Computed example of a mutant assay.
Amino acid sequence: MPGENDEKVSRCIIITGISGSGKTTTLHHLEDQGMFAIDNIPPSLLPQLFDVLRTHKAAVEHGVAAVVDVRGEALLHDLIEVMGFLRRSISDVRLVFLDADDAELLRRFETTRRRHPLGGIPILEGIAWERDVLAPIRDIADVVLDTSGLLPTAFREKILGELGSSREHVTLIVSSFGYKYGVPKDCDFLFDVRFLLNPYYSEELRPLSGRDDAVQTYLRNLQESERLMTSLLGFLELVLPLYGNTGKMQMHVGVGCTGGRHRSVAVAEWIGAHFREKGWVCTVRHRDIDKEARW
């Protein structure tokens, strides 16, 4: 039994509509926004699902997005009743109905070479059947969106705009590394800070790392560090939201020095602290920080 002090899911987006209209794509976009995503769930299980997700961090903080459609067959008929229950128990519930014209839907099925979910009937016949069965659900939808002719970027812009979701929910990953151990292969940007004076050559600082106050103070006192951080942070503040605008929900920045223990670690820590303070989701990793700890 959930405890009295358990948090609960306060946001829910139910996605339904005609097959081929973009339900799965919409689910992926909402998942990129941090929501807990689930595809093809019988409506009657939704209340139980929200009870279970009381302890799930992403579900509590960002909400739940679920696709419910004709793949559930007769189970779909419970959706209208379940929506009434959800509206009474969850503060922010929205039912999104996606549609497109017949020609567009037919083109999408032919492009992907997928059969209609009902199987055994022509695609256009299946679409007509769906429109008839889903008409009562469409009537109670909070958002009805026609996706005909929308290219991927425009589709994302429209669905997130309709649902009031952030376009800047980009996760920033900052990795320090040592060039002597190789360059990371999956970074979007690489910054070389080997031009900064190396604390390694100080006997007092050598055993420490860029996480330690003494090393950070040493580096902050360098004129080059101040100029570097002003330019570097300004650049990242420019490009980070632009990444979100184009649909890329993660940006990986690599910061390298010779051994990956002092200079790159300190700079990576400064970048992380700066963007976390501004409200961005930021993870800082130090790939090579322990490889020269013996010195």
Rank of each mutant, 00 (worst) to 15 (best):
E269I: 07
I13C: 00
V64R: 12
N198V: 08
G254F: 15
G119F: 08
R227A: 10
D212K: 14
L172Q: 03
A293W: 07
F36H: 02
D102I: 09
A141D: 03
T111H: 04
L190A: 03
A65V: 14
Q33L: 10
F195Q: 06
P122N: 11
M83V: 13
Y218S: 11
V60Q: 01
Q33S: 14
H116G: 14
L233E: 11
R287L: 07
R263S: 01
R113F: 14
V267T: 02
L219M: 06
I121D: 00
E61K: 15
Q33M: 12
F36E: 03
A59T: 02
E203F: 10
S44C: 05
P43C: 08
I18N: 00
H286M: 01
C187T: 12
C12Q: 05
L232P: 08
G256I: 11
K278L: 04
L172R: 07
P184Q: 08
H169P: 00
R287H: 01
T111K: 15
G17Y: 04
I137F: 15
M229G: 01
H274N: 09
G164I: 11
P152A: 14
L95P: 01
Y179S: 00
D192W: 14
L196D: 07
P42V: 10
G178K: 06
L76Q: 09
R138K: 15
L222N: 01
R261L: 03
P207F: 14
R71N: 02
Y218L: 12
D192S: 13
R263W: 12
A214S: 11
G126I: 13
R94F: 13
F50N: 09
S225R: 07
L79Q: 12
R156W: 15
E130W: 11
K291T: 06
T16H: 12
R294V: 09
A135P: 08
L150I: 06
V281N: 05
E125A: 15
E110D: 15
V170M: 11
I271M: 05
V183K: 15
P199N: 10
H169F: 13
